[in-house]
Amino acid sequence: MALAARKIPLVKSMPTARTPEPLLRLVQDLRVADGKSVTTTAFVYLVFGALITSIFMVMALNMALNQDSIKLHRLKIEAQAIADQEEAITAQVARFSSPHMLAKRARTLGMVPSGTPEFLDLRPKVSVDSEVAVKGVAP
């Protein structure tokens, strides 16, 4: 750029005759080998192409991100449903394992409360409390 700038005259002498003004340029007119000047169309296409590609890429990225976010949202709802289910089952288990329900179920199955236990005092080798037990061990 510095080389190109040096070739442009900094002070222009007043024209003696009315001649067309030369086009001011910062850079030298680009020309291909055969002398034809280079058009900017390709460059514009390139810029637009890059822009559109970028927009599509950003959109794709955004969609991907949102896709994950939506997926996360759906999974949260699913997790909530499972948690609800688990809670309902826990409540059911708590109800079934309550003493009241167990006693009711035991009665249905024909079970009866256990009687007074027999305790054996091993030192004198006789039952300490029950006449029945004493009779049982008597010869």
Binding site: A91, A94, R95, S98, P99, H100
Partner: peptide, 8 residues
């Protein structure tokens, strides 16, 4: 509020 043992 849930009282799993009901009357208990």
């Amino acid at each position: 509020r849930d009282y799993p043992e009901k009357y208990l």
